[in-house]
Amino acid sequence: MSLKENIGMVKEGLTAEEQFFEKAVVTEKFVKKYKNVMIGSVVVIVLVVAGNIIYNMNRASTLNAVNKTLVTLELNPSSKVAQDKLASLSPTLNDVWLYSQAVAHQDLKTLNSLQNSKAPLIGGLATYEAAQNSQDKAKLEAYAQTQGAIYRDLAQVQLAIILMNENKITDAHEHLSMIGIESPLAPVAKALMHYGVK
């Protein structure tokens, strides 16, 4: 090798080392400039992951406790301790449980207390059941006028039957005519209008 070639190789080596050190200095400046942001990002990610894990564990624990409480209530429906525990763990599920028991035992007091329930559908269903069990025309009519009432048509049929028993044929016809032809109760309404109400 000649001296010229040796000097060329040394220059190339120095240029490569200079580039390496230059990149190291740029990286160091970048890290110093954004160190707090990077540390904050890592901390936030760790906290989010840890929070999610803790939330899921707590949710699973609550779900297990609710399931055990429901099993206890199935075995002993009159257990006040289990019912209070269910009410504290899941108020909406407690309302569903109370509704099922009130319907099974025709408990008007409980049905009336559930009319303002926060559980989806329970308030409306409890209103209907209380009106139906007490054969209260005003409550049945108010329920039938409620927007989104699930048993609207059934309430109309029940009102018509009550009115038929009171010989108020015109009023019974009026309630039966409110049932649409697409309703599953349309054949019942038609039959009552033809055969039951004359």
Results as ranks from 00 to 15, higher is better:
1 M>A: 12
3 L>M: 01
3 L>I: 05
3 L>S: 15
4 K>I: 07
4 K>C: 01
7 I>A: 13
8 G>Q: 15
9 M>W: 10
10 V>P: 01
15 T>K: 14
18 E>S: 00
18 E>P: 00
19 Q>W: 09
20 F>H: 05
20 F>V: 11
22 E>V: 07
22 E>P: 01
24 A>W: 11
24 A>C: 11
24 A>M: 15
27 T>C: 08
30 F>P: 03
31 V>A: 12
35 K>A: 13
35 K>D: 13
36 N>I: 12
36 N>E: 10
39 I>M: 09
41 S>M: 09
43 V>C: 12
44 V>N: 03
46 V>N: 08
48 V>I: 14
49 V>P: 03
51 G>R: 00
52 N>G: 07
59 R>N: 08
61 S>A: 04
62 T>A: 11
62 T>E: 10
63 L>T: 00
63 L>V: 01
64 N>H: 00
64 N>G: 00
64 N>L: 00
67 N>W: 02
69 T>Y: 04
72 T>H: 13
74 E>R: 07
74 E>F: 03
76 N>A: 15
79 S>T: 12
81 V>S: 14
81 V>Y: 00
82 A>M: 01
82 A>I: 06
84 D>C: 09
84 D>K: 15
85 K>S: 11
86 L>S: 04
86 L>I: 05
88 S>N: 08
89 L>N: 06
89 L>I: 03
90 S>D: 14
90 S>A: 15
95 D>P: 06
96 V>K: 05
98 L>Y: 09
98 L>Q: 14
99 Y>Q: 08
101 Q>V: 09
102 A>Q: 02
103 V>E: 04
103 V>I: 06
104 A>P: 10
104 A>K: 14
107 D>W: 06
109 K>A: 13
110 T>F: 02
112 N>G: 14
114 L>Y: 07
115 Q>Y: 01
117 S>Q: 02
118 K>C: 05
119 A>V: 05
122 I>S: 10
123 G>A: 09
127 T>S: 12
129 E>Y: 04
130 A>I: 05
131 A>E: 01
131 A>V: 04
135 Q>G: 13
136 D>G: 06
136 D>A: 07
138 A>C: 05
138 A>D: 15
139 K>S: 14
141 E>T: 12
142 A>E: 03
142 A>I: 01
143 Y>W: 02
144 A>K: 09
145 Q>I: 03
146 T>I: 00
149 A>Q: 02
150 I>G: 03
151 Y>C: 01
151 Y>M: 10
152 R>Q: 09
152 R>M: 08
153 D>Q: 11
154 L>R: 14
154 L>W: 07
156 Q>D: 13
157 V>S: 06
158 Q>C: 10
158 Q>Y: 14
159 L>Y: 13
161 I>E: 01
166 E>S: 06
168 K>P: 06
168 K>C: 08
168 K>I: 11
168 K>E: 07
169 I>L: 04
171 D>K: 09
172 A>V: 03
175 H>R: 12
175 H>W: 04
176 L>W: 08
177 S>A: 15
178 M>Q: 15
179 I>P: 04
183 S>H: 07
183 S>F: 06
184 P>Y: 09
189 A>N: 02
190 K>S: 13
190 K>E: 05
190 K>H: 00
192 L>F: 05
196 G>A: 11
196 G>C: 08
197 V>N: 02
